[in-house]
Design a protein around this nucleic acid. Sequence first.
DNA 1: TAATAATTTTAGGTTAAGCTAAATATTTAA
DNA 2: TTAAATATTTAGCTTAACCTAAAATTATTA
Lengths: 217, 217
Amino acid sequence: MSSHIEENYLKAIYKQTERNKDGAYTNDIANELNVKAATVTEAFKKLGDKGLIFYEKYKAVTLTDQGRAVAVKTIRKHRLWEVFLVEKLGFKWDEIHPMAEELEHVNFEELTERLAKFLGNPEFDPHGDPIPDKNGKFAQNKSVKLTAINIGKTVAMTGIENHTPSFLQHLDKLGLKLGAEITIKDVVEFDQSILVSVNNKKEFYLSQEIANNILCK
Amino acid sequence: MSSHIEENYLKAIYKQTERNKDGAYTNDIANELNVKAATVTEAFKKLGDKGLIFYEKYKAVTLTDQGRAVAVKTIRKHRLWEVFLVEKLGFKWDEIHPMAEELEHVNFEELTERLAKFLGNPEFDPHGDPIPDKNGKFAQNKSVKLTAINIGKTVAMTGIENHTPSFLQHLDKLGLKLGAEITIKDVVEFDQSILVSVNNKKEFYLSQEIANNILCK
DNA sequence: TAATAATTTTAGGTTAAGCTAAATATTTAA
DNA sequence: TTAAATATTTAGCTTAACCTAAAATTATTA
Ligand SMILES: [Mn+2]
Ligand SMILES: [Mn+2]
Ligand SMILES: [Mn+2]
Ligand SMILES: [Mn+2]
């Protein structure tokens, strides 16, 4: 299994396990990576043989320490390149994911570490996601969903839980970027949408669906 | 044929054709890419079918316009990343080739063009090799080999014809980097080695072998 | 120019990573 | 608690990119 492909499987398993700590099911990964379930079963067998995941037929898989290390390193590379693309090359946050998806597979430890230093050892990527350090440690960010904030409170936007370009572009249009000060003005009982003001300026309604995908603290 | 592999073949054919305008022979490419001759024959057939090279059995192959465009774009990406690695990340010129060899295959036109701009649209890479512009045009650099310079003349070092780490490291040790002012003090009749001074300071002998791999103007 | 050497191609095989269709196992719901 | 639905695995195929060994072609040299 080429390292490129291996890294994509391990990263997908890592992310799925973050959502559901049982682990990752065949279908989860098939959907994430746009391959068929049968293909994933084969991949699971090989990753199991290599000691990168725990695999038992019909059970959700989880990462071994070794597998997790590969996944976390890949995430580190991905997020560092995303910072590079935004901070140095001026891309917008909705444009960078596909490029980082390729750059993350260039494997030279010295390159990664020098890139990190060049960027000032950032702790968060342009989407507010934490960048693990070279030992695999993530900065703790105890953010909560915007839907959990009470009326009257003001919070700072720290991240998002949906990375699709359409969601990101919509946030841009609303002036909602990382660091924005959001005040909860009201909650509509009928549909749970919320009335917010941003940086004490613009005021508008956000659907529950949107508010659920915004993290803050 | 994955684009990654295709680009490596086309780049190798391009470079070989620069050396020998007949084109590239099966064995040339097999040696360059560390694969067997039979593998190259197969690749030639596929590249021929795709309209990227002109292939006739037992003849040297040459690039079509389309194939040349891919090769030149790959060279552009390679050399831009080399500039990045040296100028921004502080790598030395003997360390960068393997990393650029991977980075060159990340294919997003906008990324390449923004990288170029970020680097100040450089015309030469850290080895003095010209970087084609986005239309595939190379800056003309009419450099000549150091062995072609007469006694008494002073020239500026502009490039090299050998990119091995050991050669590059040796040049470093001698203080010979791009831009260095080299004065030809003497030519030894016995072995054609030359006595040079660098930046009017150090003076030493260079074997013909070495002098042949140094370009200047 | 004929024999030898070198190069290239062909034939046949392997491995990785994907696929579809069918078989099997697990989960859900009547 | 069985039947139906869903999920996973197995079996068998395909394609790309490599390989070795043998055959064919081209180039060199005696
Ligand atoms: Mn990826
Ligand atoms: Mn991100
Ligand atoms: Mn390459
Ligand atoms: Mn170079």
